[in-house]
């Protein structure tokens, strides 16, 4: 069995490792250091890290909006998998069709972006 098809994969793993090690080690040396309170607190996705009252509490509607946008754009990816698997045999036709599909998703994305759906405040 020839291992040639796996060579790019191994190269990719190598590159990823190099990049990860590089980013982690270089950070403390060249990055600016500013200490503030938020950095010392527990990370809770932007919510004030206070203990929630019994029975649960409300949190801003912005989280729901972001979650909903995530769901809808995330699930569109599901169509890319079968296309990627059959990419070779689908050829140009499949590529163009997929491009059109992504364009329609992009139309929705532009609307969300222009309407401020991606702004936090």
């Amino acid at each position: 069995m020839s291992l040639t098809p796996y060579v790019p994969l191994v190269v990719l793993f190598g590159l990823a490792t190099v990049f990860a090690v590089f980013s982690v080690t270089i950070g403390p040396y060249i990055g600016p250091r500013r200490i503030n309170k938020a950095k010392l607190e527990a990370y809770e996705c932007g919510i004030e890290p206070t203990p929630t009252p019994p029975g649960g509490s409300r949190f801003p509607v912005k989280f729901y909006l972001t979650a909903m946008l995530f769901i809808i754009f995330d699930i569109e990816i599901v169509f890319l998998y079968p296309w990627a698997v059959a990419f070779d045999s689908l050829g140009m036709f499949g590529f163009v069709e997929m491009l059109l599909f992504i364009v329609t998703v992009f139309v929705a994305y532009t609307y969300v972006w222009r309407r401020g759906g991606l702004d936090w405040d």
């Binding site: 729901y64 809808i72 599901v78 169509f79």
Partner: peptide
């Protein structure tokens, strides 16, 4: 299996519309 894909996407769209209305 392909149909299941379509259903998943439709269901996600339905979730978004539904949650918006319920909210």
């Amino acid at each position: 299996q392909i149909m299941a894909f379509f259903v998943m996407v439709v269901a996600a769209a339905e979730v978004v519309v539904g949650l918006a209305i319920i909210m």
